[in-house]
Simulated assay, not measured.
Amino acid sequence: MDGTIGGAFVRMTIQSEHTPATPANGSIKDSLAVETIRLASLISGQAPYEGSFSQRIPGLSVSRYSRATKDDMKSFDLPSLLIVAQGAKTVTVGQEVYPFKQSQILVLPVALPISLKITHASHLEPYLSVKLVLDPHKIAELVLRVYPQGVPAVTKWSAGYVLSADAAMINAASRLVACLSHTSDAELLGPLVMDEILIRVLRSPIGARIAELGFAGSEANLVTKAVAWLRNHFSHPMKVAELADMVHMSESTFRVHFKSMTSMSPLQYQKALRLHEARRLMVSEFMDATTACNLVGYASPSQFNRDYSRFFGSPPKRDVVGLRQQVTPDSNLPLE
């Protein structure tokens, strides 16, 4: 584990608590390999085409990509747990970079604007993963069972955590994806297997950090409340001191904890939210840049264009044309 002074961020790559300390145990490695191959096969059956696909179990999706990406793709992710069955990917949050690969898990505890890149994939061995959205209410329910004596104190936070999965975790993910083949299994057994996966994460070395999200009044919970307010009011003027007061923290403490959990300042987070929403309005609602700029809270169209170009790598009109052509290559949809 490494981090900065004052807990500005913590970067962690952690071995699962269930993985034996001695790498000489070949049977453990063989078991993990077999389970991972099975998970990849099951995901491939649910994702026969390129892209990410929501499933009938709420909060569950699977992804398939058959080529590495040259440029970063901007996205906005809900709190989530992602398990890679094949290939590799890199997620960037603020200034923090999280590379992860086959048989590894990425956990993002709060909703975050991210950049992602598929770093290893081919048509023969596509990138395959399964993602679960984290529900703070469900986490709070399970924490009482996993930590009946209370959650250990947490002193350092991070925007994301990478863990090495063990065979039991991969097996649980396989059983979850297998539930999708039968409606009754998806409805009755799927939620139980999702609980099992969350329990395994709560028992892992980052478990206390995830558990804190479900405790009212904890620093992590207060930051997630501030994040929720920003997501719902991103177009409103915002003063950091008022946001800190809203969640009953001093401004200095709030700034430190917010940055440690998101790898960005509250103002940077608000700007990212505004730009993502403006992009969505232009692509999905066929809105012109000036109207989108005003709706998301920008007072200056020129400032909006500068921020948009820096954030997405292209000015609004060119970026939106490119995004629409990815969906309909021959389309010539108007932007004005």
Score class of each variant (00 low, 15 high):
T4W: 02
G6A: 12
H18V: 12
T19H: 10
A21P: 01
T22H: 12
A24W: 08
G26A: 13
S31Y: 00
T36E: 00
L42A: 03
S44P: 00
S44R: 03
Y49H: 14
S52G: 09
F53P: 00
R56Y: 01
I57Q: 01
P58M: 10
S61W: 06
R64V: 00
Y65P: 02
S66I: 03
S66R: 06
R67Q: 13
T69N: 13
K70Q: 14
K74P: 03
F76M: 15
I83W: 08
Q86M: 09
G87V: 05
T90M: 08
G94C: 09
G94W: 01
Q95T: 05
Q95M: 11
E96V: 04
K101E: 15
K101S: 15
S103A: 15
I105Y: 04
L112A: 12
S115K: 13
T119E: 10
E125K: 12
E125W: 13
L128D: 02
V130T: 10
D135Q: 09
P136N: 15
P136T: 12
H137C: 06
H137E: 14
I139S: 01
E141V: 11
L144P: 01
P148E: 10
G150D: 08
G150R: 04
P152H: 13
A153N: 13
A153W: 05
A153T: 15
T155M: 15
K156S: 08
Y161G: 08
V162G: 03
A167L: 05
A168I: 03
M169D: 01
L176I: 07
S181G: 07
S181I: 02
H182C: 04
T183Y: 14
T183F: 09
A186V: 07
A186S: 10
L188S: 10
L188M: 07
L188W: 02
L189H: 06
P191M: 07
L192D: 10
L192Y: 07
M194K: 10
I197R: 02
I197L: 12
I199K: 04
I199V: 14
I199C: 11
R200N: 10
I206Y: 02
A208V: 08
I210E: 02
I210L: 15
G214Y: 00
F215D: 06
F215V: 11
G217I: 10
E219V: 11
V227H: 03
W229F: 15
L230H: 01
H233R: 15
F234Q: 12
H236L: 08
P237R: 14
P237K: 14
M238R: 11
V240R: 04
L243R: 07
M246P: 05
M249C: 09
M249T: 04
E251A: 01
E251Q: 06
H257E: 14
H257F: 10
S260E: 01
M261G: 07
M264D: 03
S265Y: 09
Q268D: 14
K271W: 08
E277F: 13
R279W: 07
R279F: 04
R280P: 00
R280K: 12
S284L: 14
S284V: 05
E285D: 12
M287E: 04
M287C: 06
M287D: 02
D288W: 02
A289S: 14
C293N: 02
C293G: 01
L295I: 13
A299N: 06
S300W: 07
P301T: 05
Q303Y: 01
D307C: 05
R310M: 09
S314W: 00
P315E: 11
P315G: 03
K317I: 11
K317Q: 08
R318L: 07
V320A: 02
Q326H: 03
T328Q: 09
L333W: 11
L335R: 05
